Amino acid sequence: MKAITFKEFGDADVLQLADVPAPEVRPDDLLVRVHAAGVNRADLTHRTGGYGRPNFGDSTIMGLEIAGEVIETGSAVQGYKVGDRVMGVVGGGAYAEIARIDWRMAMPIPAALDYVHAAAIPEVFVTAHEAMLHLGGLRRGDSVLIHAAAGGVGSAAVQLAYATGAQIFATAEASKHERVVQLGADVVIDYRTEDFADVIKKTTNGRGVDVVIDFVGAPYFARNVAALANGGRLIQVGILGGGAQVAVELEQILYRHLQIKGTVMKSRAQAEKHAMVRRFREHWLERFDGGARLEPVVDSTFALARAADAHRRMESAANVGKIILTMAAEDLV
């Protein structure tokens, strides 16, 4: 089968289309003919050596989410059969014609969606639900600040917050504000020219927000704490801003009853990942089909052979929503 490989860590040019053996099916696996695969920030970290080795996870091939058709099932699989359309999160191996996925990490693709839009769902919407609703406890009538709201997880979080009935503050660069408002944000803040903590303080009459969803890390930490209401929850989903060290006034945590939680799907035990997917599926999956639909936000598509260009697109930070790789026959040359 065709897949994207790389022989050394480096820039996007290290990614190459190559012939590799198809993965073997284990008892809990679905073998899937991949039609589309999502590109994620973790893929960039993988490519540049941030995980320390090329086989971090379940495969030496990168990629964390797929959409495709089941072509074989393992002996312990329940609820799926050959021919089913599925999407889901894999432990690596998505940048390929064929991938294997633990059946408990898979979900049926809603009938209204094609493979490209299905591939834009699993990683970002599961992460957004876990961070904002399960860990952050967001409820109707709450307020939330969502950083990087035009990105994959950010755009998913805005939609889930809107569907929950929360007041939404979001940060994004000015050129992306209109799209973020269309997704449901009430107040969009230009992180380049405005101080989001000041905007929230003024807009909420000093109260702050109930939940902050942050991907940036150290450069935002103090202002995230300042933006929280008493009893507020800061959920740290990434550290894209660099730097792992922060300073915190413990009195702020104690006397304002704040909570700070971190979440990364990739490093969780498999049973915890199963639970994350199940929580999202039970709560939201039917909302991608029929009436008041959630929308997988697709920024752009690239043929598998152009994976390097897809990575450059993500590195440019120009995308609004997901970047997707496609595996049509004409894309594998």
Rank of each mutant, 00 (worst) to 15 (best):
E8P: 02
G10D: 05
G10V: 11
D13A: 14
V14G: 05
V14M: 08
V14L: 06
A18G: 04
A22I: 03
P23V: 10
V25F: 03
P27R: 07
D29S: 11
V32R: 13
A36E: 04
V39M: 13
D43H: 08
T45A: 12
H46A: 12
T48A: 13
R53G: 02
N55H: 14
D58I: 04
S59V: 11
M62N: 12
G63Q: 10
G68A: 05
V70A: 14
E72H: 09
T73L: 05
G74K: 10
V77W: 06
Q78V: 15
G83K: 15
D84T: 08
V90L: 02
E97Q: 15
A99I: 02
R100K: 15
W103G: 03
R104C: 04
A106N: 04
A111N: 14
L113Y: 03
A118R: 09
A119W: 04
A120H: 05
E123H: 08
A131I: 01
M132R: 03
M132D: 00
G136E: 10
G137K: 12
R140G: 12
R140L: 03
G141P: 06
V144C: 05
L145I: 00
I146M: 05
H147S: 09
H147G: 08
A149T: 09
A156T: 10
A163F: 14
A166K: 01
A170S: 11
A170L: 08
T171K: 09
T171G: 02
K176F: 09
D186I: 09
I189D: 09
D190C: 01
R192Q: 12
R192L: 06
R192P: 00
R192S: 03
D198K: 14
I200C: 01
K201R: 12
T203R: 13
T204P: 02
T204G: 02
N205A: 13
R207K: 12
G208L: 07
G208K: 07
I213R: 01
D214P: 08
P219E: 11
Y220R: 02
N224H: 07
L228H: 01
L228G: 06
R233M: 13
G241W: 02
G243Q: 02
A247K: 11
E251C: 00
I253L: 15
I253D: 01
T263R: 11
M265D: 00
A269Q: 13
A269Y: 08
V277F: 09
R278C: 00
R279W: 07
E282P: 00
L285D: 05
D289Q: 15
G290S: 04
E295A: 11
V297N: 10
T301S: 06
F302P: 04
A303W: 05
A305Q: 13
R312E: 12
M314P: 02
S316I: 01
A318E: 12
K322S: 10
K322G: 03
I323S: 07
I323P: 05
I324F: 06
L325G: 04
T326R: 13
M327T: 15
A329Q: 13
D331A: 15
